[in-house]
Design a protein around this nucleic acid. Structure first.
Length: 445
RNA sequence: GGACCCAUAGCCAAGUGGUAAGGCAAAGGACUGCAACUCCUUGACCGUUGGUUCAAAUCCGACUGGGUCCUCCA
């Protein structure tokens, strides 16, 4: 399969370092607020990547961190007059609730910065010893000039960066490009080290965690394009200095989500919280997957509405297929797909996913299969075909994280539906309407 | 100011050298006891303009219009 590697800017054949095993790390949230719908994009994208790898039989070691040491958390804690931990724990919990609602898996390793302070300090210490970092008045900075390759990931030249007048002016640093590894401070959570009492900068946590957890260059590092510079560039810089590798063999970056054509971010205050969307979030997940993960995506209520309807259609089709088979006592398990038309759709689905996770085309395959299912449901029922179609569509939905919950009919429901059918045959429409109402109220129609 | 990306039907969106997938909306039709659901049919000279090529939405240049990054941000 092919993956677009942001580091080389090329579509590359993906080969994991270890056979059957894939190591993945995705930059997680800074937990000082509820996540907005843009924050949900990488979460859904990389959950889908993981699901596809697992579908293909790989054992995926998935790690995503929580940044729980940060200026904004300190500020929020001050405002609420509580310890920082209260703030971060609250929003970690909220994050996981949103993530579950988006149907993302949560059984992955979730390291927190506060749990990784010794490793982060040790990492910084090594960088100092290797001459890649220097201490000034208790602050520790990374010496960018020592690394010839700096700027390769984000594809920019050092001269341009310096020329850009927006680079922070800090008299203490050797160069304006040097970034903070450790900040001397008495404010908020801080720790004692030989350089000073303070706390880590943002850029070391991910590499320290990856180093500790995986102990080697990982297969995939993911995150939003806006993290490419400086965050990921700085991760690579530190890793090259200390471990002589680029953190990950494949770097994946998802495009931004914009709101009505404008950038959405917490700092601009125009963000919509995931928890405020007020819809079945699988519809939102589907919306996110309807555009290729690397393209920018424009959010609007109208665009989302399309997928609210689409999701309803999927739900209805799959439920109806399952119920039809159930009603006729024809549900089979461990079905193997042999029907040519279904195999063709599966093939299109897999080819699409193999091509740098082309989920829009994967959704096209899903639509094709749905149409076939709805066609066959109006004809004389072919149970073997329908079982295969159910298997196929469930597999696809599971890869995309769009599973439709299916439950077997209770005996009383089965009776009810049969009575309704009979009443219609008998043309007893008063009874039929009454039964239909009952069935409908049970959500079985 | 610097770097980079994008521009396909009313809307969303694949396709990245060989004569335009899919979805939504719209219109017409079918099915149905009434409904709902569903099914069928109908739509594009691929922003403008030069060039390369037997052949370009697809490659190169210019222009126009959007967007992202350079600062915390997913």
């Amino acid at each position: 399969m092919k993956i677009f590697n942001s580091y080389t800017n090329k579509l590359e054949t993906f080969v994991p370092h270890h056979p059957n095993r894939i190591s993945m790390y995705v930059c997680g949230p800074t937990v000082y607020n509820y996540i907005h719908i843009g924050n949900a994009r990488p979460v859904v994208v990389f959950d889908t990547v993981r699901r596809y790898f697992e579908y293909k039989g790989y054992n995926v070691q998935f790690v995503s961190n929580f940044t729980d040491v940060d200026d904004k958390i300190i500020q929020a804690a001050k405002e609420a007059n509580v310890p920082e931990m209260i703030i971060s724990e609250k929003y970690i919990k909220a994050f996981l609730e949103d993530v579950v609602a988006l149907n993302c898996k949560t059984d992955y390793l979730k390291p927190k910065v506060t749990e990784y302070i010794p490793q982060i300090i040790a990492y910084i210490q090594s960088l100092i010893e290797l001459g890649y970092a220097y201490i000034i008045e208790g602050d520790v900075y990374f010496r960018v000039s020592k690394l010839a390759e700096y700027g390769k990931l984000s594809n920019r030249k050092l001269d341009d960066l310096i020329a850009g007048s927006r680079v922070e002016i800090n008299e203490k640093k050797e160069s304006p490009l040097d970034f903070t590894l450790w900040k001397k401070t008495e404010e908020g959570l801080h720790w004692h080290t030989s350089f000073s009492d303070g706390r880590p900068g943002w850029h070391t946590e991910c590499v320290a965690m990856i180093d500790d957890i995986f102990g080697e260059e990982i297969d995939i590092h993911g995150g939003g394009t806006d993290l490419m510079f400086p965050h990921h560039e700085n991760e690579i810089a530190q890793s090259l200095a200390k471990n002589h590798h680029h953190v990950a063999r494949y770097w994946m970056h998802n495009g931004r989500l914009n709101l009505e054509g404008e950038k959405m971010s917490k700092s601009l205050g125009n963000d919509i919280k995931v928890k405020d969307l007020n819809i079945d979030l699988k519809a939102y997940r589907m919306f996110l997957l309807s555009t290729h993960y690397r393209s920018p995506l424009n959010f609007s209520i109208e665009a989302l509405d399309v997928f609210v309807r689409e999701w309803a259609k999927i739900t209805k089709t799959v439920e109806s297929l399952h119920r039809t088979l159930d009603l006729h006592d024809s549900l089979e398990s461990n079905v193997i797909v042999t029907a040519g038309d279904i195999m063709e759709v599966i093939d299109y689905f897999l080819t699409s996913m193999d091509n740098d996770f082309n989920t829009p085309n994967a959704l096209t395959a899903l639509n094709q299969l749905m149409r076939s299912i709805n066609q066959k449901m109006r004809q004389k029922l072919d149970y073997a075909w329908l079982n295969q179609a159910l298997r196929a569509i469930n597999d696809m939905l599971s890869v995309l994280g769009l599973e439709v919950p299916l439950i077997r009919l209770a005996d009383e429901d089965r009776v009810l539906i049969n009575q309704w059918e009979q009443a219609r045959v008998d043309k007893d429409f008063a009874l039929a309407d009454m039964l239909r109402k009952k069935i409908s109220e049970k959500g079985l129609l």
